[in-house]
Design a protein around this nucleic acid. Structure first.
Lengths: 297, 297
DNA sequence: GTTAGTTACGCCGACCGTAACTATA
DNA sequence: TATAGTTACGGTCGGCGTAACTAAC
C-alpha cells in the first residue's frame, strides 16, 4: 500500500465523491486517481465507494472504516514529517519570503497577517521581485520561501503547488466591455488593454491566448504592479486583465470585474523551497496555508 | 515519504542497527536500504542514526521520536490492510494449505498447532504435494495458501517470502563426516549421500553446488520425504543433506547434524496466494506467522 | 585483508498523462 | 450529446541490483 493511495481516496471524499474534482485539486490526471483508488480497493479486498450508474455516490461500510483509518495515518505521517523533530516548537526566528507583487499585495496579505498573530516572535521579511529573481533568491539561500506563478527549472528546489489564480477583466463600472457576458477575445481586442508585464502571472498568458487565437490585441500598457494598472484603469485608459485576487470590492468601488479565466487560463501558484532546506515548525505552517491539501509533501 | 522508508528504518533498528542484516531480512540489497534511509533522513531534515566510524550504533533523539511514530503508522497501516474490513472477526471457516513434505512435517507443525488453538472453528486442511502441484493448486483455487521453497512464475499470484531454511548434513552419531568441521564439498563427495528429490527444497541446490564446484557427488538415494531419508540414514546408508529443520534433537537421538548452509545456500520459503484472493482475518494471521516482518504487504 | 556502508550506473517496473472507450441521462 | 469514469498504451521517473569505492580495525 502507498500513502498516495490514501491521499487520493481522502481527496475524493473531500470533494463530494468527484474523482474529477479530486484529480483537479491534486493537480493530477483523473484516470491516475481512478486507478490508484481501484488498486487500493483491490488490495483491501473491498469496495470503498458506493457506485451508482457509473458515479461514486457514497462510502460503503468498509469505505467509512477505511476513511477514518486513512485520515489518521495521514495525520500521523504529517506530524512525523513536520513536528517530529527537535525544534518542533520553534516559535521564533526569521522567515524571508521572496515573491511577486501580486502575491505580496493580495494573496499573501491575510496569510501573513494571521501568521504574525500565531508566531509573533518570527520576523517576517518580504522581498518583492520578479519571478526570475524569486527563483534566484531561493537557490542562493537569501530567501527561505519563494512564491511565484511562473514555473522555472526546479533543479535544486522543491516545489509545491498552491491554489490557481483565476483572471478577470477590470474596468470602470458600466464600461461597455461588460455589455453582454461572456466576453470573447475578439470583443476584448476592440478595447485598449492593460496587463501585467509578460514575466508576471497573468502577463504572458494573456499575450499567448490572443496569439493562439490569431487575434491582435491592443495592449496599451504593461506594468509589474497590479495597483499601478488599476490606477490607470480608473482614469479610463482601458480594460485591465489581471488576476482576480487583485480586485477588491471595497477598495475598488469605482471599478467592476468579470471573470475571464475561460479565456486566459488560471495562473498556478508555486511555493519554492531549497531542496536541502528543512521545512519545519512555523515554516511548515506557513506553507500549509498556501498549499491546499494539508499534506503538502 | 513512502511507507517502505519507515519499514526499512524500523528493520534496521530491529536488527541491532545493522543495515546488512535488515536488508537480508527484507530480501533486498543492502545499498537499497541505505539509500532509502538516507532519503528519509533528508526528508525529515535530521539524522536518525548515530554513526560512529562508518557504522550505525544507535538512534539520535530525532531517531527515537521517529521510530515511535513510524511504528505506530506501520501498525495502523497494517490494521487497515488486515482488519479494516467487514469480516475482520471471522473466526470460522476453512483454510486449505498446499505445501511440500518438509514444510508440512516440520516448519508448519507448530504454526498450525498454535493456529488451531487460536481459531478452533477454522477447519485446516493440509494438502501435501510437490512444488509444482502447490503452484497449480493455488492458481486453480483448490487451495488458499501455498507454501513452497521453489520459485515459479508468479503470474496471477501474490508471493510473500518467509524465513530461509538452512541446510545440514545428518548422519549417525559419530559418523566420520563430523570429523573436523567445517566440512567441504570435496570431503562430502567421498561419502554416500542422500538428498531430497531435485524438485524439492534442498534437492536441486545440492546437485548444483557440486556441479558448480566441478565435483561429482555420490548420491545413493533421493526421496520426496525427509523422514524416509532419515530412516535410511539411521540404518547406515550414508549422509543426508536436508533442511536443518528436519533434524529434531529429541526424535533423532541416534543422529547428529551439522550446518552446511555455507555449502548449499539457504532454501527460501515462499507463501503463495492467488492475486484476487482477499487476505484477511485468520488467513492474514496465518501468513503473519510465516512471514518474518509483521508487515508482509 | 576483511567487514560495513556509501556512491555510480544501467535496468526495469510502476505511475502518469493522452486518448479512446463505455455508460448514463 | 454531454459528462463522469474506466481501459489502453507509450513515456518517463525512481527504486533496485551489481559493482566499484571508502573507511575502519
Amino acid at each position: 500500500m502507498r500513502l498516495e493511495q490514501l491521499r487520493f481516496f481522502c481527496a475524493i471524499v473531500d470533494n463530494n465523491f468527484s474523482v474529477t474534482r479530486a484529480a483537479d485539486i491534486l493537480h493530477i490526471s483523473q484516470p491516475a486517481v481512478s486507478k490508484q483508488v481501484a488498486g487500493l480497493e483491490q488490495e483491501l479486498g473491498a469496495d470503498l465507494f458506493i457506485r451508482a450508474s457509473g458515479r461514486l455516490v457514497g462510502l460503503t461500510a468498509a469505505g467509512q472504516a477505511t476513511l477514518a483509518r486513512a485520515r489518521q495515518i495521514l495525520i500521523e505521517v504529517d506530524e512525523l514529517l513536520h513536528f517530529g523533530k527537535g525544534d518542533t516548537n520553534a516559535v521564533s526566528g526569521r522567515l524571508v519570503i521572496a515573491t511577486t507583487h501580486t502575491h505580496a499585495r493580495y494573496t499573501l496579505l491575510d496569510i501573513i497577517k494571521d501568521f504574525r498573530l500565531l508566531y509573533p516572535q518570527v520576523h517576517v521579511h518580504l522581498v518583492q521581485a520578479n519571478p526570475f529573481q524569486v527563483h534566484e533568491a531561493i537557490l542562493a539561500g537569501t530567501a527561505d520561501i519563494g512564491i511565484s506563478s511562473e514555473r522555472q527549472d526546479t533543479k535544486g528546489l522543491r516545489e509545491f503547488r498552491g491554489r490557481d489564480l483565476g483572471r478577470s477583466i477590470i474596468a470602470p463600472v458600466g464600461h461597455p466591455v461588460f455589455g453582454r457576458a461572456p466576453v470573447t477575445l475578439k470583443e476584448l481586442s476592440k478595447h485598449s488593454l492593460l496587463t501585467l508585464d509578460f514575466s508576471f502571472p497573468g502577463g504572458r498568458a494573456v499575450g499567448e491566448a490572443f496569439e493562439n487565437a490569431g487575434i491582435e490585441p491592443n495592449i496599451v500598457m504593461t506594468a509589474t504592479d497590479a495597483d499601478v494598472i488599476k490606477s490607470y484603469v480608473r482614469v479610463g485608459l482601458g480594460v485591465a486583465v489581471l488576476p482576480t485576487v487583485t480586485f477588491d470590492r471595497t477598495i475598488d468601488q469605482s471599478l467592476q470585474a468579470a471573470d475571464v479565466t475561460y479565456l486566459f487560463g488560471a495562473a498556478p501558484t508555486f511555493v519554492l523551497v531549497r531542496e536541502d532546506h528543512v521545512i519545519r515548525g512555523y515554516m511548515s505552517e506557513f506553507i500549509r496555508q498556501i498549499v491546499p491539501d494539508n499534506h503538502f509533501q
